[in-house]
Design a binder for these strands. Structure first.
Lengths: 120, 120
DNA sequence: TTGCGATATGATGAATTTATCAAATCGTAA
DNA sequence: TTACGATTTGATAAATTCATCATATCGCAA
């Protein structure tokens, strides 16, 4: 999948995360986590992306080994290449919850601070 | 942490993965997963990076909320911002194992194919 | 073969990231 | 205050990614 397989493991791992480092690609992977497979048309409808835009993102996901595709007649179906991709998304959700929670707590704390004197 | 908190959640999630999308940054986070905290000097020694190079990467990790830093005198210590970061790395390792395993199996299968006639 | 729906690929400019070096800043001892 | 070790920040060029549009390709029915 990466030609002669000479790519360092850290590079391959970084590539996995690169695949995940775009909002639409996360959405695609989440759709594929929620159902066994999805056609490109389905994903276009769900994400609202234009066909060629989605296809470019799907190409990245294929390139980094996160999804696999299968053409049946004129319809192409995608699925997660490994179930661990869904696990990754799951943990990311938990991390995001922590982060957003913490961020909200920080903003509340700032809001409770005394007002600074104006500079004008 | 993201100013007025107006960034869409998918953007924030993508940012998390962006933080992870570089080999040296993965290494740093793995070091911080393996021990409670590490000083910059320690990480310089382990990674072999130059100080300013490492600092730029640490800045990205801080920016995306993956690590927190604390200065004690002239030494700065870093730790994971949340334990879920370590979980993420753990699942990524499992995914990588699958991927590498599959990749090896694919290469073995190709190796077993009959040799194509030469084109010269 | 032609035409068409579905999808992928190519191309390109803008935006962002990466790599690297120079300079600034921080904390502290003298 | 000066000097120094430790670390961060600024700057910049090269590389890569992102966004978008045009074009090509695939599979199949007629």
């Amino acid at each position: 999948m990466f030609g002669d397989g000479e790519l360092p493991l850290y590079e391959i791992k970084a590539n996995l995360f690169k695949g995940l480092a775009h909002p639409y690609r996360i959405r695609v992977l989440e759709i594929l986590s929620a159902q066994d497979e999805a056609s490109v048309a389905q994903m276009i409808e769900i994400t609202g992306l234009e066909a060629s835009h989605l296809s470019q993102h799907l190409s990245v996901l294929r390139k980094y080994g996160l999804v696999v595709s299968e053409r049946r007649a004129s319809i192409v179906f995608y699925k997660l290449a490994y179930p661990q991709v869904a696990d990754l998304l799951k943990v990311a959700r938990q991390l995001l919850a922590q982060l957003v929670n913490h961020s909200s707590a920080q903003r509340a704390a700032v809001g409770a601070l005394p007002q600074l004197p104006s500079q004008s």
